[in-house]
Design a protein around this nucleic acid. Structure first.
Length: 435
RNA sequence: GCGAACUUAGCUCAGUUGGUUAGAGCGCCGGGUUGUGGUUCCGGAGGUCGUGGGUUCGAUCCCCAUAGUUCGCCCCA
């Protein structure tokens, strides 16, 4: 039987050219996070299955989680998200950490799903969280980080939009303002979440069906629909706009405006999938009609750390997946060409593998990444290899060059050749690096 | 988990209304005599037509199953 060369369903192989793109994305993520003072952490892909059962969306736990039983009968999961892990880690050291704790990580996450465009079974997801701050400033900083990341990737404000809402506000609207009970409110919030995908009559009917007859006759469904159809803060009734739960939205929008984030807007229909959000939620969407989708998002989840039996720690965070980010960059032509790490390919004229070693060592100590050809091959083959690898420079080394210590350097892009000493060679390539 | 489309060479795809040795372009390998690639010329390798069954004298083509990919639902990054 011959083995398949395909990777497991829904996961990717990263060949060197793919890895360059991944590293570019990870690099932008890490740089922006560190600019804001976030520190990197990591953890194992294996977790006790229980920690997801308390708080992740039930759908994920029931149908999409990779679980196994180990030899000690422990129920183990391959993590489907990072938030429970980081909450566990913070809970474990809650007394010794210096708050506010600002942490980021780029873990791989696994979910047993049907693979589709922008959605695989394994992806790498930037997770950025700030712990210990109840103030809206933390919500503002988290959204600023995600916006700065978009800017760092070269996105224009016309390419994406940031929707903002608040779970606390939505609960106030559904429970206090409309008078629903908590079961109805939960059903309604799930319906609102998929409103844009349903057709209008189906949505209206579902809303009516989810509300008890007394309230239905009191005109509550119509009141709700009017709210949902409203556009932005201005269309909200005064008693909602002036309500206490809405204050944090007003404050947050003010902070975002002051930061020059002009493409943020309040959206009463934004819900987010996870049940653990307790306050502000936000989502970043691609505005390109070719790729019109929610790319990533996050929000406040003040209750999660407390699930580990300790005092609660207020938290805001977001997660951004590599697959959707890459789709965004490709859709908008923002992915820069990636250069290979190897800068110099050393072609040997004659059986000089041993004799060239001192030169290679010198070049490497000086900081050049150089690969040497092997097997005493014909020169045209050696050059073809360099060209195919995308290496920009070839250095020709034969007996004469080793004797004179003057080497011929060829720029494969331009065809230009120079005869240089090793020191000049190093400075020549270093000069061009930045360009 | 549900519905649909697709799967022919390394890649992108033709093709056979079921019939002897299945094609193209690009790529790959070798050569054009010994120190120069990306252009050009010559030659070559490579496919049990996704896999497993069935129908048939005969299947890459028809039927069934299965795997993978893609699209939608669900859910979400």
């Amino acid at each position: 039987m011959s083995l398949s060369t395909q990777p497991y369903k829904g996961v990717r192989d990263f060949y060197p050219e793919d890895m360059r793109v991944q590293n570019y994305i990870y690099g932008v993520w890490a740089r922006v996070c560190e600019q804001y003072g976030y520190e990197q952490y990591s953890a194992s892909v294996l977790e006790y299955a229980e920690i997801y059962e308390a708080k992740s969306g039930q759908e994920i736990v029931d149908n999409e989680m990779y679980t196994l039983v180990d030899k000690g009968d422990r129920r183990v999961a391959l993590r489907p998200e990072m938030t429970p892990t980081v909450s566990r880690m913070v809970a474990g050291r809650r007394q010794e950490l210096a708050y506010p704790v600002r942490w980021y990580s780029i873990p791989n996450l696994l979910r047993y799903e049907r693979p589709q465009r922008g959605r695989l079974r394994e992806h790498w997801q930037l997770n950025v969280d700030i712990f210990g701050v109840s103030d809206t400033a933390a919500d503002h900083e988290i959204i600023s980080v995600s916006d700065t990341i978009m800017q760092a990737f070269g996105a224009k404000r016309s390419m994406y939009e940031i929707q903002v809402n608040s779970r606390r506000f939505i609960n106030f609207v559904l429970l206090e303002y409309l008078g629903l009970d908590s079961v109805e409110a939960h059903t309604i919030s799930k319906l609102i979440d998929k409103m844009k995908k349903m057709d209008r009559s189906e949505f209206t009917a579902s809303i009516e069906a989810a509300i008890n007859p007394t309230l239905r006759e009191a005109g509550i469904p119509a009141k709700l629909l009017t709210l949902l159809d409203g556009n932005g803060i201005e269309s909200l009734p005064d008693d909602l706009r002036n309500s206490e739960p809405f204050h944090e939205i007003t404050t947050l929008m003010g902070l975002l405006g002051a930061s020059g984030i002009t493409n943020a807007r309040f959206d009463i229909c934004l819900m987010r999938g996870f049940d653990y959000y307790t306050g502000i939620v936000f989502e970043v969407s691609d505005l390109d009609p070719e790729n019109n989708r929610a790319m990533f998002g996050g929000g406040r989840y003040d209750g999660l750390v407390g699930m580990f039996g300790v005092e609660p720690v207020p938290t805001v965070g977001f997660g951004q997946g590599d697959v959707t980010m890459r789709l965004f960059l490709e859709t908008h032509g923002l992915l820069p060409a990636q250069k290979p790490e190897t800068e110099l390919y050393v072609a040997l004229i004659g059986d000089l593998y041993l004799k060239v070693q001192p030169l290679l060592a010198e070049l490497r100590i000086e900081g050049l990444n150089c690969a040497v050809d092997m097997g005493n091959r014909k020169l045209d083959k050696q050059m073809k290899t360099a060209e195919k690898k995308g290496v920009h420079y070839v250095l020709f080394v034969g007996e004469d060059e080793l004797a004179s210590q003057q080497y011929k350097l060829r720029n494969l892009k331009t065809g230009e050749e120079k005869v240089l000493s090793s020191a000049r060679l190093v400075s020549t390539i270093k000069d061009i690096r930045g360009k």
